[in-house]
């Protein structure tokens, strides 16, 4: 591991704490492993928030999380003594019961730790360039995901405009899928709706979604044979250096051509003011 000016012994100067519901292969790489009971992440993080502020917590309450009070006291002491703490979290946290509130609990803990020492937190993004999508949607629309343009400007409401909810409720009548395979990963009612409405898929392979789609277009895989940019999960953009040449068009080209074909059609928007002072 990287040695640095302030951590000259590299890995030896670092402490890694792993929190998971089961012993994974990563345990071997960690100095400390805390096994939390499934579904108790939010409680554990909330207890830690109270503990860093020296709020009294009884052992019995802590025990329910599967982690002992001693282990947590040790963790809090280590966190406060750290020069620079970093928390990484993944879908085990954000996709289980509590969802975004589990992530919020961790982010709040990280923020509050700055009263004692330097602390940061970062989500581990699973899919290649999901960060890029986040970043671009933010600068172009103000929002990171879960957006509707149906009123002619961006509106945001996860739960209302987020894909799984939209599909399960049947709120859309045509779906364009790019760089994803919801037909393989989403709950069955969502997949059923994808099959019910015309779906268009752009993908380097014929995917599960392609098989239930109206239209599939094969495109060149990003970073393998399609050039461009991808954002690392800390929001640093990196250039792609494709090693192969593909005879398939890129996602960018196909999407642009679809957009241009739509642009060539008459607009349905009713003439109105250029701007709204009050939104819906």
């Amino acid at each position: 591991m990287q040695k640095s000016r302030f951590l000259p012994r590299g890995r030896k100067d670092r402490t890694m704490v792993l929190v998971d519901i089961r012993e994974t292969k990563s345990v071997k790489a960690a100095d400390i492993f805390l096994q939390v009971r499934p579904g108790k992440d939010f409680e554990l993080l909330t207890i830690l928030r109270a503990m860093i502020k020296d709020q009294p917590i009884s052992d019995a309450e802590v025990a329910e999380t599967g982690v002992s009070i001693e282990a947590l006291q040790d963790l809090v002491a280590r966190m406060k003594a750290a020069k620079f703490g970093a928390m990484f979290f993944g879908m085990g946290l954000s996709m289980t019961r509590g969802k975004h509130m589990n992530s919020a609990a961790l982010l709040t803990l990280a923020a509050e730790m700055n009263a004692f020492t330097k602390f940061v937190a970062m989500p581990m993004r699973g899919h290649g360039n999901v960060t890029g999508a986040d970043v671009i949607m933010r600068w172009q629309t103000g929002y990171p995901f879960g957006i509707s343009f149906n009123r002619g400007y961006p509106r945001y409401n996860p739960g209302e405009f987020s894909t799984v909810d939209v599909l399960v409720r049947g709120d859309t009548d045509c779906v364009f899928v790019i760089g994803a395979d919801p037909g393989a990963t989403m709950p069955q009612p969502a997949i059923d709706h994808l099959a019910r409405v015309p779906t268009i898929v752009l993908d380097p392979h014929v995917t599960h979604t392609s098989r239930l789609a109206k239209v599939h277009i094969t495109t060149a895989p990003a970073g393998i044979s399609a050039p461009g940019t991808a954002y690392r999960m800390d929001e640093i953009p990196l250039p792609l250096r494709p090693a192969l040449k593909s005879s398939y068009p890129t996602d960018e080209e196909v999407t642009r051509r679809i957009k241009e074909a739509i642009q060539a059609k008459p607009d349905w928007m009713v003439e109105g003011p250029q701007r709204l002072e009050t939104q819906v």
Partner: peptide
């Protein structure tokens, strides 16, 4: 973003 003014897209202009 919700309480501020919104620029409506046109055929050639982004929202």
């Amino acid at each position: 973003h919700r309480r501020t003014q919104a620029f409506i897209r046109t055929k050639t202009r982004r929202s």
